Simulated assay, not measured.
Amino acid sequence: MVKIGNLELGEFPLLLAPMEDVSDPPFRAVCKENGADLMYTEFISSEGLIRDAAKSVQKLDIFEYERPIGIQIFGNEIESMREAAAIAEAAGPDILDINYGCPVHKVACKGAGAGILLDIDKMVAMTAEIVKRVNIPVTVKTRLGWSQDTIRIVEVAERLQDVGIQAISIHARTRQQMYKGEADWSYLNQVKDNPRLKIPVFGNGDIDSPEKAKAYREKYNVDGMMIGRASIGYPWVFNEIKHYFETGNKLPGPDLEERIKVTKKHLDFSVQWKGEKQGILEMRRHYTNYFRGMPNFKPFRTRMVTAESYDEVAGILEEIHEVFADYQF
C-alpha cells in the first residue's frame, strides 16, 4: 500500500499531473471518474496568492469529489512560499505540493520551478520552511536536473526527504530538454536504489499507453506514475492502464458516444464552475483533443471554438453524433 502521510493510495497509484491551463476542476472531475487516484491543481504563483490576485485565488478551488487532492505552488522567494503555503493549506487540500519542475522560461529563469535546480541548497532550505509552516503532507514535483551535466536527483530526493517531504514525483527529463527527447527513467531506478530513501517515488514522462505503463512499472521500480499529456482529451487512460495491469488485456477505447458524453460532462462542470461565458471559453482548448483523429472534423471544431452559448455547443455535439454515427475509432 502506497501512503503519503495517512493517505492510502492503493498498491500502485496513478496521479494526474498538474498542467497549466489544463488541470482545472472540470478536467480533474472527468479524470477522477475515469480512474485517477490523486490529482493536483494547476501550479499557483506564491506571489499571486499573497497579493490576492483573482486568477491565483480561483485556482485554490477544490471540491469534495476530487479527494484526495493536492494544491501545487511555485515561487522563488522562501518567505513568499511560506506565506503561500499557509494560504493554500487554508483552502483544505489533502496535500501541498511544491513545483520544482516547470521548465518554461518565464518561470525557470526567475529561479522558480525547475530554475531552483541550479541552487539545490536553496531548494532544500525552501522545502524545509514550507514543511514547518503547514500541518498537511508536503510533496515535491521536480526534474532530473537543470541539464545533463548537473543531474543530482539521488542527492536531491534524499535531502528533501530529510527535511520532511512525504513523496516525490520526478519528470525524467532535464530542464534543458523541456518536453523533447526521450524521458530517461533509469535515474528513477537510482533514486529507488538508495537504501536511505523511504518515501514514495512517482515517475513521470512519456507514459502514453497501457503497454508502456506496464513495461515501465516492471523495469523501473517506481511506486506509482504521474500522467500528464496522455490524459488531455483522453481521461480514459487511467482506467485503461489499471485494467491492463490487472488482466494483461487492453480495454476497447471509447466510442463516439462515450467521447461526446464525457465532453459534455466536462463542459457542464466548466460552466458550473466559471459561468456560461467563461466556462465555454475555457473549454475551447479541449474539443480537438476529445475528437482527435476523426476525418473531416475541422468544420465542427471551428464551430465549437467559436460558439458562444451552452445550447449552441450542445447542439453541435448532437450533430456530431448524427454525422459520425458509423465512425469507428
Rank of each mutant, 00 (worst) to 15 (best):
L256E: 13
A157T: 12
E211F: 00
T263P: 08
L117F: 05
D184P: 02
T150I: 06
G70W: 08
E318G: 15
R175N: 07
E182G: 01
Q148C: 01
R67E: 12
F63N: 10
F297V: 07
T306F: 03
E42S: 14
L14G: 01
V134W: 04
R303A: 15
D94E: 14
Q190Y: 07
R175A: 14
V22W: 11
G35V: 10
N296H: 09
V104Y: 06
Q177N: 13
F245I: 07
K192Q: 11
I71D: 00
L49R: 06
N6W: 03
L267R: 04
I280H: 02
V2K: 04
S169M: 12
R173S: 13
I227L: 14
R159H: 08
L160G: 10
Y244H: 12
N289A: 14
E20F: 14
A325C: 04
L256V: 07
A314F: 07
W146H: 13
D37Y: 02
L14P: 03
S309N: 03
S270E: 04
Q72R: 09
N221R: 15
K250C: 11
S23Y: 05
E66V: 09
R159Y: 08
I199T: 04
F27R: 06
A125L: 13
Q166G: 03
H105C: 09
T302S: 13
L9G: 14
R28A: 01
L15N: 03
E308F: 02
M226R: 00
S56R: 04
K32G: 05
Y179K: 12
P252E: 11
V191H: 01
T127G: 05
R67A: 08
K32D: 06
K250D: 13
E11I: 07
C102N: 01
E66K: 00
I168K: 05
V22E: 04
D208G: 15
F300M: 13
V154S: 04
V140H: 09
I4S: 03
W146I: 08
L7I: 15
D184A: 07
Q272W: 05
E47G: 01
I87Y: 06
